[in-house]
Amino acid sequence: MKKILSDIYKNRIWLLMVLPGTIWLLLFSYLPMFGQVLAFKKFRIHPDGFFASVINSEWVGWENFEYLFSTSDAWIITRNTLVYNIIFIVVGLIAAVGTAIMLSELVNKKLSKVYQTSILFPHFISWVIGSYFVFTFLSTDHGLLNHVLGWFHIDPISWYSESKYWPFILVFMSLWKGVGYGSIVYLASIVGIDRAYYEAAMIDGASKWKQIKHVTLPMLKPLMIILTIMNIGRIFNSDFGLFYQVPRDSGALYSVTNVIDTFVYRGLMNLGDIGMSTAAGLYQSAVGFTLVIITNYIVRKVDEESALF
Protein backbone atom coordinates (compact mmCIF):
# COMPACT_ATOMS: atom_id res chain seq x y z
CA MET A 1 0.00 0.00 0.00
CA LYS A 2 2.75 2.37 0.99
CA LYS A 3 4.56 1.51 -2.18
CA ILE A 4 1.54 2.34 -4.30
CA LEU A 5 1.18 5.69 -2.62
CA SER A 6 4.78 6.57 -3.10
CA ASP A 7 4.58 5.43 -6.72
CA ILE A 8 1.65 7.72 -7.23
CA TYR A 9 3.55 10.55 -5.63
CA LYS A 10 6.56 9.90 -7.82
CA ASN A 11 4.42 9.97 -10.92
CA ARG A 12 2.29 12.90 -9.81
CA ILE A 13 3.29 15.16 -12.69
CA TRP A 14 2.47 12.56 -15.27
CA LEU A 15 -0.74 11.68 -13.55
CA LEU A 16 -1.71 15.32 -13.50
CA MET A 17 -1.06 15.49 -17.22
CA VAL A 18 -3.30 12.57 -18.01
CA LEU A 19 -5.95 13.67 -15.54
CA PRO A 20 -8.13 15.87 -17.82
CA GLY A 21 -7.98 13.32 -20.58
CA THR A 22 -8.74 10.48 -18.22
CA ILE A 23 -11.77 12.25 -16.84
CA TRP A 24 -12.98 12.83 -20.36
CA LEU A 25 -12.41 9.22 -21.35
CA LEU A 26 -14.23 7.94 -18.29
CA LEU A 27 -17.18 10.24 -18.80
CA PHE A 28 -17.62 10.17 -22.54
CA SER A 29 -16.27 6.76 -23.44
CA TYR A 30 -16.30 4.37 -20.52
CA LEU A 31 -19.42 5.39 -18.68
CA PRO A 32 -21.63 4.99 -21.76
CA MET A 33 -20.22 1.50 -22.32
CA PHE A 34 -22.60 0.43 -19.61
CA GLY A 35 -25.26 0.65 -22.31
CA GLN A 36 -23.73 -2.24 -24.21
CA VAL A 37 -25.55 -4.72 -22.00
CA LEU A 38 -28.68 -3.69 -23.88
CA ALA A 39 -27.55 -5.99 -26.65
CA PHE A 40 -28.59 -8.82 -24.34
CA LYS A 41 -31.80 -7.30 -23.11
CA LYS A 42 -35.29 -6.60 -24.29
CA PHE A 43 -35.40 -2.88 -23.69
CA ARG A 44 -38.39 -1.57 -21.77
CA ILE A 45 -38.57 1.95 -20.46
CA HIS A 46 -38.72 2.44 -16.73
CA PRO A 47 -40.02 5.66 -15.16
CA ASP A 48 -36.83 6.18 -13.12
CA GLY A 49 -34.64 6.91 -16.09
CA PHE A 50 -32.27 5.02 -18.27
CA PHE A 51 -30.29 3.11 -15.67
CA ALA A 52 -33.44 1.80 -14.13
CA SER A 53 -34.65 0.86 -17.59
CA VAL A 54 -31.47 -1.05 -18.30
CA ILE A 55 -31.52 -2.84 -14.99
CA ASN A 56 -35.19 -3.69 -15.14
CA SER A 57 -35.24 -4.80 -18.75
CA GLU A 58 -35.51 -8.52 -19.16
CA TRP A 59 -32.43 -10.55 -20.14
CA VAL A 60 -32.94 -12.26 -23.44
CA GLY A 61 -29.51 -13.76 -24.00
CA TRP A 62 -28.52 -13.82 -27.64
CA GLU A 63 -31.98 -13.07 -28.99
CA ASN A 64 -31.06 -9.67 -30.40
CA PHE A 65 -28.11 -11.21 -32.20
CA GLU A 66 -30.21 -14.06 -33.52
CA TYR A 67 -32.66 -11.51 -34.81
CA LEU A 68 -29.88 -9.47 -36.38
CA PHE A 69 -28.37 -12.43 -38.15
CA SER A 70 -31.67 -13.91 -39.24
CA THR A 71 -32.32 -10.87 -41.41
CA SER A 72 -30.75 -10.67 -44.81
CA ASP A 73 -29.34 -7.32 -43.69
CA ALA A 74 -26.63 -8.81 -41.51
CA TRP A 75 -25.05 -10.39 -44.55
CA ILE A 76 -25.51 -7.31 -46.75
CA ILE A 77 -24.01 -4.84 -44.30
CA THR A 78 -21.08 -7.10 -43.49
CA ARG A 79 -20.40 -7.65 -47.16
CA ASN A 80 -20.72 -3.98 -48.05
CA THR A 81 -18.54 -2.84 -45.20
CA LEU A 82 -15.79 -5.31 -45.97
CA VAL A 83 -15.82 -5.14 -49.75
CA TYR A 84 -15.94 -1.35 -49.90
CA ASN A 85 -13.15 -1.01 -47.39
CA ILE A 86 -10.95 -3.49 -49.22
CA ILE A 87 -11.48 -1.62 -52.46
CA PHE A 88 -10.86 1.71 -50.75
CA ILE A 89 -7.61 0.44 -49.25
CA VAL A 90 -6.26 -1.04 -52.47
CA VAL A 91 -7.36 1.67 -54.86
CA GLY A 92 -6.57 4.38 -52.34
CA LEU A 93 -3.04 3.08 -51.86
CA ILE A 94 -2.29 2.91 -55.57
CA ALA A 95 -3.78 6.32 -56.24
CA ALA A 96 -2.04 7.98 -53.32
CA VAL A 97 1.40 6.54 -54.02
CA GLY A 98 1.04 7.17 -57.75
CA THR A 99 -0.02 10.76 -57.25
CA ALA A 100 2.72 11.35 -54.72
CA ILE A 101 5.41 10.08 -57.08
CA MET A 102 4.05 12.15 -59.93
CA LEU A 103 3.96 15.22 -57.73
CA SER A 104 7.52 14.66 -56.59
CA GLU A 105 8.85 14.18 -60.10
CA LEU A 106 7.14 17.18 -61.59
CA VAL A 107 9.81 19.56 -62.92
CA ASN A 108 7.90 22.71 -62.13
CA LYS A 109 7.79 22.81 -58.34
CA LYS A 110 5.48 25.83 -58.25
CA LEU A 111 2.93 23.91 -60.28
CA SER A 112 3.40 20.96 -57.97
CA LYS A 113 2.53 23.18 -55.00
CA VAL A 114 -0.61 24.45 -56.71
CA TYR A 115 -1.66 20.90 -57.48
CA GLN A 116 -1.03 19.82 -53.92
CA THR A 117 -3.22 22.59 -52.60
CA SER A 118 -6.02 21.73 -55.02
CA ILE A 119 -6.14 18.02 -54.41
CA LEU A 120 -6.10 18.57 -50.68
CA PHE A 121 -9.28 20.64 -50.84
CA PRO A 122 -11.80 17.78 -50.61
CA HIS A 123 -10.15 16.62 -47.40
CA PHE A 124 -11.45 19.74 -45.69
CA ILE A 125 -15.02 19.34 -46.83
CA SER A 126 -17.66 17.65 -44.71
CA TRP A 127 -19.88 15.07 -46.32
CA VAL A 128 -22.83 17.35 -45.67
CA ILE A 129 -21.29 19.74 -48.17
CA GLY A 130 -19.92 16.88 -50.24
CA SER A 131 -23.41 15.49 -50.72
CA TYR A 132 -24.49 18.80 -52.24
CA PHE A 133 -21.52 18.67 -54.58
CA VAL A 134 -22.54 15.21 -55.70
CA PHE A 135 -26.13 16.31 -56.07
CA THR A 136 -25.20 19.05 -58.54
CA PHE A 137 -23.89 16.32 -60.80
CA LEU A 138 -26.42 13.57 -60.22
CA SER A 139 -29.71 15.39 -59.81
CA THR A 140 -32.10 13.79 -62.26
CA ASP A 141 -33.66 16.94 -63.68
CA HIS A 142 -30.99 19.54 -63.07
CA GLY A 143 -27.74 17.66 -62.79
CA LEU A 144 -24.71 18.10 -64.98
CA LEU A 145 -24.31 14.43 -65.84
CA ASN A 146 -27.78 14.00 -67.26
CA HIS A 147 -27.27 17.24 -69.14
CA VAL A 148 -24.12 15.88 -70.71
CA LEU A 149 -25.85 12.56 -71.49
CA GLY A 150 -28.45 14.63 -73.29
CA TRP A 151 -25.83 15.83 -75.78
CA PHE A 152 -25.29 12.22 -76.76
CA HIS A 153 -29.03 11.56 -76.88
CA ILE A 154 -28.92 9.23 -73.94
CA ASP A 155 -31.98 9.16 -71.73
CA PRO A 156 -31.53 10.76 -68.33
CA ILE A 157 -30.71 8.36 -65.55
CA SER A 158 -32.30 8.64 -62.14
CA TRP A 159 -29.04 8.22 -60.31
CA TYR A 160 -30.47 8.15 -56.82
CA SER A 161 -32.62 5.12 -57.53
CA GLU A 162 -30.35 3.00 -59.71
CA SER A 163 -28.24 0.97 -57.35
CA LYS A 164 -25.96 -0.43 -60.04
CA TYR A 165 -23.99 2.81 -60.41
CA TRP A 166 -23.39 3.39 -56.75
CA PRO A 167 -20.48 1.08 -56.05
CA PHE A 168 -18.53 3.14 -58.59
CA ILE A 169 -19.80 6.46 -57.33
CA LEU A 170 -18.88 5.60 -53.77
CA VAL A 171 -15.40 4.40 -54.67
CA PHE A 172 -14.92 7.50 -56.77
CA MET A 173 -16.06 9.81 -53.98
CA SER A 174 -13.92 8.05 -51.43
CA LEU A 175 -10.93 8.54 -53.71
CA TRP A 176 -11.89 12.13 -54.40
CA LYS A 177 -11.85 12.95 -50.73
CA GLY A 178 -8.92 10.77 -49.72
CA VAL A 179 -6.35 10.93 -52.48
CA GLY A 180 -5.06 14.39 -51.60
CA TYR A 181 -4.40 13.57 -48.00
CA GLY A 182 -2.93 10.17 -48.79
CA SER A 183 -0.63 11.42 -51.51
CA ILE A 184 0.69 14.21 -49.33
CA VAL A 185 1.60 11.79 -46.57
CA TYR A 186 3.62 9.78 -49.10
CA LEU A 187 5.00 12.89 -50.73
CA ALA A 188 6.38 14.07 -47.41
CA SER A 189 8.11 10.74 -47.08
CA ILE A 190 9.51 10.83 -50.61
CA VAL A 191 10.92 14.29 -49.98
CA GLY A 192 12.63 12.91 -46.90
CA ILE A 193 14.48 10.22 -48.86
CA ASP A 194 18.21 10.84 -48.86
CA ARG A 195 19.29 12.20 -52.27
CA ALA A 196 22.42 10.09 -52.04
CA TYR A 197 20.41 7.01 -53.01
CA TYR A 198 19.30 8.63 -56.24
CA GLU A 199 22.76 9.88 -56.99
CA ALA A 200 24.13 6.39 -56.55
CA ALA A 201 21.43 5.05 -58.85
CA MET A 202 22.21 7.68 -61.46
CA ILE A 203 25.87 6.80 -61.41
CA ASP A 204 24.78 3.26 -62.19
CA GLY A 205 22.88 4.77 -65.13
CA ALA A 206 19.41 3.98 -63.85
CA SER A 207 16.58 5.61 -65.78
CA LYS A 208 13.90 7.59 -63.99
CA TRP A 209 11.59 4.62 -64.09
CA LYS A 210 14.27 2.40 -62.60
CA GLN A 211 14.95 4.96 -59.90
CA ILE A 212 11.31 4.93 -58.90
CA LYS A 213 11.19 1.18 -58.94
CA HIS A 214 14.40 0.57 -57.09
CA VAL A 215 14.71 3.54 -54.80
CA THR A 216 11.42 5.37 -54.21
CA LEU A 217 9.07 2.41 -53.90
CA PRO A 218 11.33 0.36 -51.62
CA MET A 219 11.84 3.42 -49.43
CA LEU A 220 8.08 3.93 -49.20
CA LYS A 221 7.41 0.30 -48.47
CA PRO A 222 7.49 0.48 -44.67
CA LEU A 223 5.08 3.41 -44.65
CA MET A 224 2.80 1.69 -47.12
CA ILE A 225 2.75 -1.41 -44.98
CA ILE A 226 2.09 0.43 -41.75
CA LEU A 227 -0.70 2.58 -43.15
CA THR A 228 -2.32 -0.36 -44.89
CA ILE A 229 -2.21 -2.51 -41.80
CA MET A 230 -3.72 0.30 -39.79
CA ASN A 231 -6.49 0.58 -42.34
CA ILE A 232 -7.11 -3.13 -42.17
CA GLY A 233 -7.52 -2.76 -38.44
CA ARG A 234 -10.37 -0.35 -39.10
CA ILE A 235 -11.88 -2.35 -41.90
CA PHE A 236 -15.09 -2.92 -39.98
CA ASN A 237 -15.74 0.79 -39.54
CA SER A 238 -16.85 2.97 -42.36
CA ASP A 239 -17.16 6.62 -43.16
CA PHE A 240 -20.72 7.34 -42.05
CA GLY A 241 -21.21 10.49 -44.13
CA LEU A 242 -20.09 8.83 -47.33
CA PHE A 243 -22.66 6.08 -47.00
CA TYR A 244 -25.47 8.07 -45.44
CA GLN A 245 -25.37 11.61 -46.77
CA VAL A 246 -23.89 11.17 -50.22
CA PRO A 247 -26.62 8.73 -51.37
CA ARG A 248 -29.16 11.02 -49.65
CA ASP A 249 -30.46 8.13 -47.56
CA SER A 250 -32.26 6.82 -50.64
CA GLY A 251 -34.11 3.58 -49.91
CA ALA A 252 -33.65 2.19 -53.39
CA LEU A 253 -29.90 2.18 -52.86
CA TYR A 254 -29.78 0.40 -49.51
CA SER A 255 -28.63 -2.87 -51.02
CA VAL A 256 -25.34 -1.26 -52.06
CA THR A 257 -25.02 1.62 -49.60
CA ASN A 258 -25.98 0.08 -46.27
CA VAL A 259 -22.96 -0.54 -44.07
CA ILE A 260 -22.76 -1.46 -40.40
CA ASP A 261 -22.54 2.14 -39.23
CA THR A 262 -25.58 3.29 -41.18
CA PHE A 263 -27.48 0.18 -40.18
CA VAL A 264 -26.87 0.82 -36.49
CA TYR A 265 -27.94 4.44 -36.92
CA ARG A 266 -31.12 3.63 -38.80
CA GLY A 267 -31.98 0.80 -36.45
CA LEU A 268 -32.02 3.23 -33.57
CA MET A 269 -33.39 6.33 -35.25
CA ASN A 270 -36.00 4.91 -37.58
CA LEU A 271 -37.05 1.70 -35.89
CA GLY A 272 -36.32 2.73 -32.33
CA ASP A 273 -34.90 -0.75 -31.84
CA ILE A 274 -32.19 -0.03 -29.34
CA GLY A 275 -31.55 -3.71 -28.50
CA MET A 276 -30.90 -4.79 -32.06
CA SER A 277 -28.86 -1.73 -32.95
CA THR A 278 -26.70 -2.17 -29.85
CA ALA A 279 -26.19 -5.78 -30.84
CA ALA A 280 -25.08 -4.71 -34.30
CA GLY A 281 -22.70 -2.18 -32.77
CA LEU A 282 -21.27 -4.80 -30.46
CA TYR A 283 -20.81 -7.19 -33.35
CA GLN A 284 -18.87 -4.45 -35.15
CA SER A 285 -16.72 -3.74 -32.10
CA ALA A 286 -15.99 -7.39 -31.44
CA VAL A 287 -14.89 -8.16 -34.98
CA GLY A 288 -13.02 -4.86 -35.16
CA PHE A 289 -11.28 -5.64 -31.88
CA THR A 290 -10.10 -9.01 -33.11
CA LEU A 291 -8.85 -7.48 -36.32
CA VAL A 292 -6.92 -4.79 -34.49
CA ILE A 293 -5.29 -7.30 -32.17
CA ILE A 294 -4.22 -9.37 -35.14
CA THR A 295 -2.97 -6.40 -37.12
CA ASN A 296 -1.12 -5.00 -34.15
CA TYR A 297 0.59 -8.34 -33.78
CA ILE A 298 1.65 -8.16 -37.41
CA VAL A 299 2.77 -4.54 -37.09
CA ARG A 300 4.93 -5.48 -34.18
CA LYS A 301 6.58 -8.12 -36.31
CA VAL A 302 7.18 -5.64 -39.12
CA ASP A 303 8.15 -2.59 -37.12
CA GLU A 304 8.07 -2.70 -33.37
CA GLU A 305 7.99 1.04 -32.84
CA SER A 306 4.82 1.57 -34.83
CA ALA A 307 2.88 -0.95 -32.82
CA LEU A 308 0.00 0.61 -30.98
CA PHE A 309 0.49 -1.28 -27.72
Binding site: V18, G21, T22, L25, L27, F28, S29, Y30, L31, P32, M33, F34, G35, Q36, L38, G49, F50, Y265, L268, I274, S277, T278, G281, S285, G288, F289, V292, L308, F309
Partner: peptide, 22 residues
Amino acid sequence: FTFLAFFTMLFSGGLVPTYIVV
Protein backbone atom coordinates in the same frame (compact mmCIF):
# COMPACT_ATOMS: atom_id res chain seq x y z
CA PHE B 1 -3.18 4.82 -19.69
CA THR B 2 -2.24 3.98 -23.26
CA PHE B 3 -4.56 1.07 -23.13
CA LEU B 4 -7.24 3.19 -21.49
CA ALA B 5 -7.23 5.49 -24.49
CA PHE B 6 -6.72 2.82 -27.06
CA PHE B 7 -9.59 0.67 -25.86
CA THR B 8 -12.09 3.44 -26.65
CA MET B 9 -11.15 3.24 -30.29
CA LEU B 10 -12.77 -0.15 -30.41
CA PHE B 11 -15.72 -0.07 -28.10
CA SER B 12 -17.91 2.95 -28.12
CA GLY B 13 -20.70 3.45 -25.68
CA GLY B 14 -23.45 3.93 -28.18
CA LEU B 15 -25.61 6.89 -28.83
CA VAL B 16 -28.26 6.75 -26.16
CA PRO B 17 -25.93 6.20 -23.17
CA THR B 18 -23.68 9.02 -24.36
CA TYR B 19 -26.71 11.23 -24.68
CA ILE B 20 -27.61 10.47 -21.08
CA VAL B 21 -24.15 11.34 -19.82
CA VAL B 22 -24.20 14.66 -21.61
